[in-house]
Structures are given as C-alpha cells and as structure tokens.
C-alpha cells in the first residue's frame, strides 16, 4: 500500500469502506489520504522485527552454510580459549 501511495496513484475503496474512512478522517481532522498513509506506515512499523528477534530466528534455521577452513576456526579458538 505504501508503494501505491508513494507513486501517487488513486486507490478506490468500496462505498462502505469509503464512508467509514471519511468519517474517521473527519473525526481526526485529517484527509483520507493522510489517514490511509498513517495506517500504512503504522502497519509497516508494527511488522518490523527487532534485531534481537531476527538474530534469534536465524539461530533456528536449518539451511546449509558455507564451509570454513578448519584452520581458521582453530586459530579463532586458540585466541579465544
């Protein structure tokens, strides 16, 4: 939705939704476009995963990994033991 709004294209709603949006926009004293834009931005923000959860999610995945030279790993272990 944000892409559509960003391109400035007209979005048509059903009459029922249009009445509802118009009423809510009037209540908030904003235009319908602003109301929809705010809702889209809010939805995008709400769906944004935090970095900690994203890192935790990756810990669960089972996808194959690139191989690492065992000598590099051994060198890292020696430094951090």
């Amino acid at each position: 939705m944000s892409d559509i709004l960003a391109k400035g294209r007209t979005v048509r709603f059903s009459k029922k939704l249009d009445r509802s949006l118009t009423a809510e926009a009037a209540r908030q004293n904003v235009s319908v476009s602003d109301l929809v834009r705010r809702a889209a931005e809010s939805a995008l923000h709400a769906s944004t995963e935090c970095a900690g959860d994203w890192c935790l999610g990756l810990a669960q995945r089972k996808s194959p990994r690139k191989k690492t030279d065992p000598e590099l790993i051994a060198a890292y272990d020696r430094r951090h033991k």
Binding site: C50, A51, G52, D53, W54, C55, A59
Partner: peptide, 12 residues
C-alpha cells in the same frame, strides 16, 4: 547468547 538476544532488541 539466547538470553542476551532475547533481552537486547537492538539494533546492534
């Protein structure tokens, strides 16, 4: 580490 990343939301 699991506890740490559950505690710190980031960004890092």
């Amino acid at each position: 580490a699991v506890k740490i990343f559950a505690h710190y939301s980031g960004p890092f």
